[in-house]
Design a protein around this nucleic acid. Structure first.
Length: 656
RNA sequence: GCACUCGUAGCUCAAUUGGAUAGAGCAAUGGACUUCGGAUCCAUAGGUUGUAGGUUCGACUCCUACCGAGUGCACCA
């Protein structure tokens, strides 16, 4: 039973005589922040009393009189400004905890109205190796899928891979001109990545080189205005002086921006010019920008050679990506890349035009959404479609084929505007029955607090990141096992398994435990930490429980059949109530798609268990009944931790 | 120029969406029966929630201005 929901429903009944629409007031029942206020509190009487022009405490007393919660709670108390505090009755708590024993879903009831939810996440570009930037989308998206599925929704995970864009033209161009045949045979994906980087670098060079004088000019000009502004005498009027100071600051910022642009362009050009081989390649391919773009449009047009190359490359690239997913334990129901929607794009544009939603502007076909200066371009001047077009087609497809009533896009928040425009356009197009949600997350920043961008050189590949995490965990596993009293208990294979689970768990947890919307600084230490609020802490709690059950030679199945839980100590009671709140934590996590609510709950639960463990003897309990009761609490905690961590994509191990 | 996001303990982050005395972890300090697994537990210290106003019973949360950091803005996705 979900107690919170039950209490809310009881409040709704009790509030009916006092409010026209009691539901929002009933929703103001919440778990307390402080145990001294009981277990749950209702905050509805203050706003409601205001609305009715009554005294909040008096209203609270009336609501309490009308409230029927005697089954679960001690008599409610009115406190403070008009709060109603609820304390769960010990007998009820004990009864409910006992009911969890035989419940395979740990008391989590499936949702009453399951939705068809498409979760669009990870979406790497198949032409480039995955890097840290893909981690957040992959880890958060996967956790959301698992949570929503466990809650009873019909979840469809879809990896919208980038397999159709300009980067493929670059690879094809590279293949035709710079291929190292031996390398291709040895490691196709690696060679394709090299070709992509090379062509990209040469394109950058040809793109930027002619712009250098202009950039230099811009810097000189900004420099001049700054110098001039600096020469101005400061007015005595404080207000004017202030505004002048501000202006100067802005000018300096503009100068700094121009300088940064110039430096970035210069360093890219210098990288090519400083390398005789690269310079020769650049000189030999002056039209590489145009021609690699041409390769892309030839691919799209169905030109035979390019199409064959594409058909040969994509499966290999997908396989390489799949290895990463296998390691991370991530599954997709579908991998429908951009290419999949190509046949639908033409008709999408035509339909938009026919409906009068899109019109031509400057040669491109655009949707002009109210409140936006920039148009939403669905066909470029050269006739090619954009990702806006693909995204629209994808919505259509998902509604038709998957009966989606909710689509989640687990994508970097920098793309917010794109999604606002996309959703706006889709609604005008007629897709009003499907809820579209940008589940945005913050940017990973570098140590300089600037967005962590993948420039050649400081890219942290995803694979090496995972390896680093596992290696770090391995050092800790070794140290701990060697230090064990009776000598090491793990063999080589077991240590490797534990290190994998702990290392990957640490990395995933670092991402999931943070509010997804805030940026964070990429930090090895934080990602690989294994003490405090980390996955390791929960994994350890789980392994400790398994250790107890092992040592006590406990048959868990038999224990569940005829054992009974008796709650006496405060630590036992605290643990029991935590266990009963698993479903509430899942509700919170899925309400606005925030896995950090689940991580917070699991950490609290593991912490509550550790306290219980420190205060209450289990195997050495005073009576056999008490021992059984506590063993059952251990068993339940282990089951919940395993389930909860599993929903986050974090593995549990019995011995570590 | 226009738009959006964010400023919370020394550091990294929470805060159940307007509720009671703003909470965790890390780092620091002090403690835990000769450990049912010490990768643990308990305690102490650490705050004018960027600044100034406003809204109200009540504000980290909503509004206004300012300061500071960042992101996006016509044919790359």
């Amino acid at each position: 039973m979900n107690l919170l929901n039950e209490l809310r429903s009881r409040f709704e009944t009790a509030l009916t005589p006092f409010a026209i629409d009691p539901a929002p007031f009933a929703a103001m029942v919440k778990p307390t922040q402080d145990a001294k206020f009981g277990d749950y509190q209702a905050n509805c009487c203050m706003p409601l009393a205001k609305q009715r022009g009554e005294n909040p405490r008096e209203l609270a007393a009336k609501v309490v009189a009308a409230l029927d919660v005697a089954e679960f709670c001690e008599p409610p108390e009115v406190a403070g400004a008009g709060f109603i505090n609820l304390r769960v009755r010990p007998e009820w708590l004990q009864e409910q905890t006992n009911a969890l024993i035989a419940n395979t879903r740990l008391g989590v009831e499936p949702v009453a109205q399951p939705h068809h939810i498409v979760v669009d996440f990870s979406s790497p570009n198949v032409a480039k190796p995955m890097h840290v930037g893909h981690l957040r989308s992959t880890v958060i998206g996967d956790a959301l899928c698992k949570i929503l599925k466990f809650q009873g929704h019909h979840v469809i995970s879809d990896n919208h891979v980038g397999d159709w864009g300009t980067q493929f033209g670059m690879i094809i161009y590279g293949y035709k001109h710079f291929l190292d045949q031996a390398a291709l045979e040895r490691d196709m994906v690696g060679e394709l990545a090299r070709l992509y980087r090379l062509v990209n670098q040469l394109c950058d060079y040809h793109d930027l080189k002619p712009k250098l004088p202009k950039l230099q000019e811009a810097v000189a000009e900004k420099q001049k205005t700054v110098t001039e502004a600096e020469g101005n005498t400061i007015p005595t009027d404080a207000k004017k002086a202030d505004s002048l100071k501000k202006q100067l600051k802005k000018l300096r910022e503009q100068l700094a921006d121009a300088q940064a642009d110039l430096e970035s362009a210069q360093s890219k050009c210098a990288a090519v010019e400083g390398d005789a081989t690269l310079k020769a390649l650049a000189d030999g391919h002056p039209k590489i920008v145009v021609e690699s773009r041409l390769e892309t449009s030839m691919l799209h047009a169905g030109e035979r050679v390019n199409r064959e190359l594409w058909q040969r490359f994509v499966p290999e690239c997908l396989e390489a990506i799949q290895r990463m997913y296998d390691r991370l334990g991530v599954n997709f129901d579908h991998t429908l890349g951009e290419s999949y929607y190509d046949p639908l794009l033409k008709s999408v544009v035509e339909e938009m035009q026919a409906k009068g939603l899109a019109r031509e502007s400057d040669g491109a076909v655009c949707v002009f959404n109210a409140g936006f200066e920039a148009p939403f371009i669905i066909r470029k001047r050269d006739g090619a479609f954009t990702y806006a077009t693909t995204d629209l087609a994808t919505i259509k497809y998902r509604v038709q084929e998957f009966q989606a009533d909710l689509i989640l896009y687990v994508v970097d928040s920098r793309q917010s505007e794109h999604f606002v425009q996309l959703f706006d356009t889709a609604r005008q197009w007629g897709y009003t029955g499907v809820e579209l949600q940008h589940v945005k997350f913050g940017t990973i920043l570098g140590k300089d607090n600037r967005p962590y961008k993948t420039r050649s050189g400081d890219t942290v590949g995803l694979e090496s990141l995972l390896d680093e995490g596992v290696a770090n965990a391995r050092r800790i596993v070794d140290a701990n096992d060697d230090r064990k009293e009776g000598g090491p208990v793990l063999d080589e294979a077991a240590r490797a398994r534990v290190a994998e689970a702990v290392g990957l768990g640490a990395i995933k947890y670092a991402d999931l435990s943070q509010n997804r919307e805030s940026d964070y600084v990429f930090d090895w230490e934080r990602m690989l930490a294994t003490t405090g609020d980390t996955a390791t802490y929960m994994q350890y709690a789980y392994a400790r429980i398994c250790g107890i059950l092992r040592k006590g030679d406990v048959d868990r199945e038999a224990l569940r059949v005829d054992g009974k839980i008796v709650l006496e100590q405060p630590a036992e009671r605290a643990l029991a109530i935590k266990l009963l709140q698993f479903g509430e934590a899942l509700d919170q996590a899925s309400f606005e798609f925030r896995p950090n609510f689940l991580t917070a709950y699991l950490f609290e639960a593991a912490n509550t268990f550790s306290t219980f463990y420190a205060k209450c003897d289990v195997l050495k309990a005073a009576t056999p009944e008490l021992r059984t009761s506590r063993l059952l609490l251990c068993d339940l905690t282990a089951r919940m931790l395993q389930q909860g961590l599993g929903l986050l994509g974090v593995e549990t191990i019995e011995q570590m």
